[in-house]
């Protein structure tokens, strides 16, 4: 059966129909679990995160009417997974996810005061503008790696490419991001 359109799924949420969760899971369940699994190192935690994501969506739609829906759902899953990850003890840490954080820290090493919500939003907006200057592939690689926290080999499988080439491209993109943010005056 073909998945419903996003608008049809959102309509079910507005009707408070439990079928909304069924349809959401059918269309985006794999993406939710993959996003959570990239961060968490435990199957039970991934399941719990997925369930919490659906609950989060249920509790916020309505009044939210997100477009595109996939971004909204994956962002909730990502945030919940990251929250659960950071709350863990060291023994359950995920070095693959740590590697993602390491790479991000490489290209934005200078201290930026993120206590101010405004400055955090400004940095997000700048990164979005930067993404708009990239080719489709470089942007795809970047978002899959640092938003979805995919491994390089997963990205290679998705694009039928080679891990080596993707790693190189990510490295160059991080360099460009660093330069871009420096020129924007966002790095001291």
């Amino acid at each position: 059966m073909t998945p419903l359109e996003d608008s049809e799924i959102i309509a079910l949420f507005y009707e408070r129909s439990e079928q909304a969760i069924v349809e959401l899971n059918r269309k985006y369940g794999a993406a939710v679990k993959k996003t959570a699994a990239n961060i968490l190192n435990d199957r039970l935690d991934v399941e719990e995160c997925a369930n919490d994501t659906y609950l989060g969506v249920w509790n916020t739609i309505p009044p939210q009417n997100p477009k595109p829906l996939v971004s909204y759902v994956c962002r909730i899953a990502r945030n919940l997974a990251a929250k659960k990850y950071h709350a863990r003890r060291a023994a359950k840490r995920n070095s693959a996810f740590d590697a993602v954080l390491d790479e991000l820290e490489e290209c934005i090493p200078a201290p930026v005061n993120l206590e101010a919500e405004y400055e955090a939003k400004e940095l997000s907006a700048a990164i979005s503008r930067f993404l708009g200057t990239l080719s489709y592939e470089d942007r795809f690689f970047f978002v899959r790696r640092y938003f979805y926290a995919d491994s390089v080999s997963d990205i290679a499988a998705m694009t039928q490419g080679k891990s080596h080439r993707i790693s190189v491209r990510l490295f160059r993109t991080r360099e460009k991001l660093h330069q871009y943010l420096t020129e924007e005056g966002l790095l001291t």
């Binding site: 945030n79 991000l104 934005i108 955090a120 940095l123 997000s124 990164i127 640092y146 938003f147």
Partner: peptide, 8 residues
């Protein structure tokens, strides 16, 4: 930083 990327 991870949160900032989450808001793109």
């Amino acid at each position: 930083l991870f949160t900032v990327i989450g808001e793109i």
